[in-house]
Design a binder for these strands. Sequence first.
DNA 1: CTCGAAATTAGAATAATTCTAAATATATTA
DNA 2: TAATATATTTAGAATTATTCTAATTTCGAG
Lengths: 126, 126
Amino acid sequence: MTKYEKKIYDIVNASRKHLTADQIYTELKKEYPAVSLATVYNNLSKLCDTGLIRKVTLEDSPDRYDRTEKHDHLICQKCGKLSDICLDDLTHQLKTQLGDNFLSYDLKVFYICPDCRKRSSSKTTV
Amino acid sequence: MTKYEKKIYDIVNASRKHLTADQIYTELKKEYPAVSLATVYNNLSKLCDTGLIRKVTLEDSPDRYDRTEKHDHLICQKCGKLSDICLDDLTHQLKTQLGDNFLSYDLKVFYICPDCRKRSSSKTTV
DNA sequence: CTCGAAATTAGAATAATTCTAAATATATTA
DNA sequence: TAATATATTTAGAATTATTCTAATTTCGAG
């Protein structure tokens, strides 16, 4: 692991914020001002390939990078805010249906976050 | 509903192939050779907004458009092929946890499709 | 028919990501 | 240590899906 790979891994794992490549780049530049965005992308895809982090693909937003520890995502349909949620594991059901060919799953749950709920009950949505 | 909106809706619903905007454009041009890609995008987002079709966002692939009838997606991790799968509905569990704020969910299941499985068992993966 | 709104068009603009080729750093081994 | 090989990083160009813009066309209501 190179210093950049290690540091990018640390940044992703330390954050619970689902950072974009660009945010990671900004963070990394604090320590290594000369680093390039290409290096960030290179290392992010290397880390994804080896399974040390995972990529979260969303609509209308650049990809985000996340720790691999098992959890699902909750996305506010109004403001787009992304947070984590723990749900019953679907693995058993999927293994029964797909056998050894099953690899993993990605579950996204859409909802209205408390902030947006508050906003829309106090005044009409713009 | 304009003629384009209607026809695009029909194309998406008639296909079980999860078409990209560009594929829909190609299909639509058979009947309306003068149509522009912008019109396809305009109508696709209108149809998504009204909930008549849904957009499927994937990694390393342009967005695809799909009928709304409830079903989940199965994605081959090797070749990227997308197909449909029917699974137990998670709605009950999600409503219990999130209440009225719950809107919907999007589940993607990753596996190795039969074709790729066959290929990799007969010879070593390149 | 005429007006105005909505839809459509072509093409430019945008933005995230990937690619390319040169430069740099690191490791290997003599 | 020097010579060489290999891997990483860099800057910036290229790519690609999608959105935006402004002009044009279509079409229904009066």
